[in-house]
Simulated assay, not measured.
Amino acid sequence: MKVATHPGNFHADDVFALAVLGLAAGPVQVVRTRDEAAQAAADVRVDVGGRSDPATGDYDHHQRGGAGARPNGIRFASFGLVWREFGAQLAGSAEAAASIDERLVQGVDANDTGQTISESLVEGVRPMAVSGLIAAMNPVWDEALTPEQEDARFAEAVAFATGILERELAGAAAYARARALVDAALARAEDPRIVELDRNMPWREAVITGAPEALYVIYPKSDGWGIQAVPEALGAFDNRRDLPAAWAGLTGDELAEVTGVPDAVFAHTSRFYASAGSREGILALARLALTGPA
């Protein structure tokens, strides 16, 4: 596949768009040019051409009126346009593609289309996002590169973005596997307030949204068993029920004495996590947390 895009400084939207195409369609030959005839001769045009039409291989957003926006108002840049076409194919489902769009694609698109979607709470501090990482790979103002060197720098950026996308895709697949296992754990729970997993895995969304009675999740670890309190909502730090205040910050013998659980190991000061040496020990802690004072 031959893909045309613009020369000169690159941005995260065109870099990530090329990364998506490379993953979706195999090896990509990139032509960085402003020549309209050369662009027209390519199979696909990204961030150039003034059209947005997947049927003709056009993924640009610089035309008058742009290329549309998502229901939340975030406008499409080239990354979003290409992801909309190929995301579900790469991620394995529309749901997984939408999750990656929310987590990665929309931030890049918003940055490229001039939309502010986050603000620093500390004056003078501007955390670097992925768009900034890509931008930093461009030559600095007084660095003179040949066109070949510029193309090589662009290829380096695309390889970097490809690695990020590959990890996102792997994470989406792993999340889907975990979701099935967590749903099965919810279905077999003897006490709906205690969810037992056979290993630690992403459980919060499934438990928070699908198990309103669940208060604690327990699971084996490399050195024993852990218990975590279920948050009130996704992204929240407040829990449906904290672990008992009397446990907070205790370890070893102190925690064992307070709880009566011989192999109790540790309780976090924030009362969201504790550990024990065995399944029996963690179940005992969970039952105490359910019945004792919070």
Rank of each mutant, 00 (worst) to 15 (best):
A25Y: 13
R51L: 15
A41F: 09
H61D: 03
R34A: 03
A38S: 14
A24S: 05
H62K: 01
P27H: 00
A25D: 15
A38Y: 01
T33M: 08
V28S: 03
T33F: 07
A38T: 06
G50K: 10
A37Q: 07
A40Y: 05
P54M: 08
A25I: 07
Q39K: 11
Q39D: 03
Q39I: 01
E36V: 06
V44D: 03
R45G: 01
R34I: 14
V44I: 15
P54I: 06
S52D: 14
A24D: 11
L23V: 04
D43Q: 14
T33L: 01
E36G: 00
T56S: 10
V46R: 05
P54Y: 06
H62R: 00
V44K: 00
G49H: 02
A25G: 07
V30Q: 03
D60A: 05
R34S: 12
Q29L: 09
D35Q: 09
T33P: 06
D43C: 04
E36H: 01
R45Y: 10
V28I: 13
R51N: 08
G57Y: 14
T56Y: 03
Q39F: 02
V30W: 00
V31S: 12
A38W: 08
V30I: 15
Y59R: 01
P27N: 10
A25E: 14
D60P: 14
V28M: 02
G26Q: 12
G50L: 07
D53F: 09
G49R: 08
A42N: 14
A38M: 09
H61Y: 08
T33R: 03
H62I: 05
V48N: 03
V31D: 13
D43F: 02
Y59C: 01
D53W: 04
S52I: 00
G49W: 10
D58K: 02
A24K: 05
L23H: 03
D35L: 09
G57F: 00
D35H: 02
V44H: 11
G26E: 05
V48P: 01
T56N: 00
L23Q: 04
G50T: 13
D58C: 15
D35F: 10
E36P: 00
Q39C: 07
V28W: 02
A55I: 11
